[in-house]
Nucleic acid binder design. Structure first.
Length: 742
DNA sequence: AGCACGCCGACT
DNA sequence: GTCGGCGTGCTC
């Protein structure tokens, strides 16, 4: 049942009804009627006491394929959430709705008392109302009564006196009956709706593969043809043509009659890829991502279920797509953190993909220029097959990268410097030459904080332990966690001082700086603030690809997988943004982001150049990213993780306990930690300690970490600890294999 | 007294 | 997620 933290429930059903895993049923749950999904069927010779009986079977055939039901169950066990939560991810959008979503109406009926009452004792309005109710044999809905000038107040008064009865009734109407009839090709959206990405049209197979690509393909098609489970890590530098390998491999697999799942971090950010896949496989492709409307998602899901497609492109939830005979699962940019869902069910799309591949006997290909330490370690140990693309297509050189020491810039130009002289000059040169530039700063807004020079107070969020970010164009200061916002104050809110200072820069400020510097440049900004609306990012990227823009300023959104041949300059305003975070993955994230964004330069005929501004020019993640030296970074980072006992040398589970006060949060967490320590023989329990974001949306947060090599033991301990403290269960968030320490 | 609101436990 | 039960605190 679609209820968080609730395990599998057992219901009775009459003998003789066809029941199979994957079928949906209507069942009573407490006072409600809900739509559940059958996970298992057990036959009993005699009736079992204490079970409620399912009300109705909604499907004649399993809606969710049996293997996907099993996969969802595995994910629920592994990630410590309710099976209904993972199963919900596997169901088509509209089937997720509760039975209550069948229109529920309030119906009034006459009672014996009401029929017998002396109508002379009633008011005019009551008399009119009771007359209407009495003449309707099956009762009359309150909505109908209202349209006949009988207000809810009048009918409520009659109900209170027991003269009419009001009941909630579900309208018996299965939304799928209507849908199934109408499922047509209308759902075959135009490759995500926004087709033309940069690059050429025509079949992607027209391009001749490089020698390296050919070698990788030979190995991969070999592995795929074995029709047995294996995992390959395709480590290819930026611009080496990994997509080309995926597409050709996918084509080979589907020609052998097996299905292909292509998982990508966020299609909405890379509309070009969707278009490419579309051109490669035509209408044998389905697309699944959150940018589609409910109706579109529903249609795409059913196209897959019916077997109308053999290639599915989608974001993490597509790992549960109802595709049959899966022979290949590709996880593109496997290191990308958006594969991990940041709300329950907190599953990792890549890791679920590997389990699905194992169960299906499929080849799983993980691709990245900057593999996660987890994946690369498995490749090193031989568990995954390692394939490497070391050269760019057409042997184009990687960008030449310069690290700009901002300490020197500060010394020379004063504390207000944002763009170094070198980066500013480089942008100017590109404008002169008619070439394009990307400028990255992974932080949105104009300023990160508003600081009072008189009393040293900083404008903070009243609900969260964080400073408000200044968005100047909106003249608002906003919390990026709870969305609380205020007008930017003219005077300090604590001392009324009038000398307020903007501290810390964001993309909005960078855009303004570049405009100041180069008033004629055509500049656009890409971050969550500017591309909130559907299709907005595709529009900007398209304009950039058509060279209607000279400079693109943005957050990590501009670093992801885009292929702009005319970009010859990449500037990173501050490589340090992610390094300050209290997270053992800070260096890895910084390395990945820098490598990815630097890889956007020089993908066309002209050599690319990049500038990375930093206050830590000797930090290893910056140095190795500048050289695009993944191996050096990996060796160094792995050593750090080993010595500090962090993943991938062991596994972690994070628990966050929330409470209305800090003391309460600590006390509650301490109870759970005690219980965990009690069970801890093979793992360590760290904490409780205030979480880095100690207050969020008005709640105080305290953290506990489990660290160990035996995940099952840790999961077991968490289950038992939460079982022993049922009263706290709702206040605790459990994250298995957390990607963030926040 | 009557009820709005929030918290908590239960849901097969 | 959401319902019912129950306690607290407020209004008439």
């Amino acid at each position: 049942v679609p209820v968080p933290r609730l395990g599998l429930l057992t219901y009775a059903a009459p003998i003789g009804i066809r029941l199979e895993p994957g079928m949906r049923v209507l069942a009573p749950l407490g006072a409600r009627t809900i739509t559940g999904c059958i996970v298992d069927v057990v036959e009993e010779a005699a009736p079992v006491d204490g079970l409620k009986t399912i009300l109705r079977v909604l499907d004649e055939q399993p809606l969710v394929p049996a293997d996907v039901v099993k996969l969802a169950q595995w994910a629920a066990d592994y990630y410590l959430c309710g099976p209904g939560e993972t199963l919900a991810a596997a169901l088509p959008p509209m089937a997720r709705q509760r039975a209550d979503a069948f229109k529920r109406q309030r119906v009034a009926r006459i009672t014996p008392e009401g029929a017998a009452v002396d109508r002379g004792s009633l008011t005019d309005k009551q008399r009119a109302a009771i007359a209407l109710v009495a003449e309707a044999v099956d009762g009359v809905t309150l909505r109908d009564l209202e349209s006949r000038q009988v207000t809810a107040a009048v009918i409520g008064g009659l109900a209170k006196r027991g003269l009419v009865a009001i009941e909630r009734e579900t309208v018996d109407r299965d939304p799928f009956v209507a849908d199934e009839a109408g499922v047509g090709e209308a759902g075959a959206t135009e490759a995500g709706g926004h087709a033309h990405g940069p690059g050429a049209s025509g079949s992607p197979f027209d391009v001749e593969p490089t020698t390296e690509q050919r070698d990788a393909l030979t190995t991969l098609t070999g592995l795929a043809s074995e029709q047995a489970f294996s995992v390959a890590l395709l480590h290819g530098v930026t611009g080496s043509g990994k997509t080309q390998v995926y597409l050709r491999l996918a084509d080979a697999v589907r020609r052998h009659g097996r299905g292909v799942l292509l998982l990508v971090p966020e299609i909405a950010l890379t509309p070009a890829l969707a278009a490419l896949v579309r051109r490669a496989f035509g209408d044998r492709v389905a697309i699944q991502h959150s940018g589609l409307s409910e109706g579109e998602r529903h249609d795409q899901w059913h196209r897959i279920r019916r077997g109308d497609v053999d290639v599915v492109v989608g974001t993490r939830s597509a790992v549960f797509a109802p595709l049959q005979q899966v022979g290949l699962i590709v996880v593109d940019e496997e290191h990308d953190t958006s594969y991990k869902q940041d709300e329950s069910p907190r599953y990792h799309g890549r890791d679920v993909a590997i389990v699905r591949g194992r169960e299906a006997g499929a080849l799983v290909v993980l691709g990245s220029a900057t593999p996660s330490l987890e994946s690369f370690q498995h490749a090193q140990s031989g568990r995954y097959r390692l394939l490497t693309l070391e050269r760019r297509v057409l042997d184009r050189p990687l960008a030449s990268v310069s690290i700009v020491d901002m300490r020197e810039e500060l010394a020379e130009q004063g504390p207000d410097v944002v763009l170094s002289g070198r980066l500013r000059k480089a942008i100017g040169q590109r404008l002169e030459a008619g070439e394009q530039s990307l400028v990255l700063l992974n932080r949105r807004g104009y300023a990160t904080a508003l600081f009072c020079r008189q009393c040293a107070a900083t404008l903070e969020c009243p609900n969260c332990s964080i400073t408000l970010t200044v968005h100047r164009s909106a003249a608002r200061a906003r919390c990026h966690y709870c969305d609380h916002e205020v007008r930017v104050p003219e005077r300090c809110v604590s001392c009324a001082g009038e000398f307020l200072e903007y501290r810390g820069v964001g993309t909005e400020r960078i855009e303004a700086e570049i405009r100041d510097c180069y008033p004629d440049a055509r500049i656009a900004r890409v971050d969550r603030d500017t591309v909130r609306r559907r299709g907005a990012i595709a529009r900007v990227l398209r304009r950039f690809a058509r060279r209607e823009l000279d400079v693109l300023v943005g957050t990590q959104m501009i670093a992801k997988g885009h292929d702009f041949p005319e970009v010859t300059l990449v500037g990173v305003v501050s490589a340090d943004v992610g390094l300050g975070v209290a997270d053992f993955r800070a260096a890895e994230r910084t390395f990945q982001l820098l490598t990815q964004v630097v890889g956007r330069a020089g993908r066309g005929a002209r050599q690319g150049e990049a500038y990375i501004q930093t206050l830590y020019p000797n930090h290893y993640s910056i140095r190795h990213a500048a050289k695009q030296d993944y191996r050096a970074f990996y060796d160094r980072e792995l050593e750090y993780r080993r010595s500090m006992h962090y993943p991938p040398s062991l596994s972690m589970v994070s628990l966050v306990v929330k409470a209305p006060s800090p003391g309460q949060a600590i006390a509650d967490a301490a109870r759970i930690a005690r219980q965990l320590r009690h069970a801890a023989s093979s793992f360590d329990v760290l904490g409780p300690a205030p979480a880095p974001l100690s207050r969020l949306r008005g709640e105080h947060r305290v953290q506990i970490f489990l660290k160990g090599t035996h995940r099952a033991a840790m999961r077991q301990a968490v289950i038992r600890a939460l079982d022993a403290h049922r009263d706290l269960a709702r206040r605790v968030t459990v994250d298995v294999d957390p990607l963030s320490m926040l």
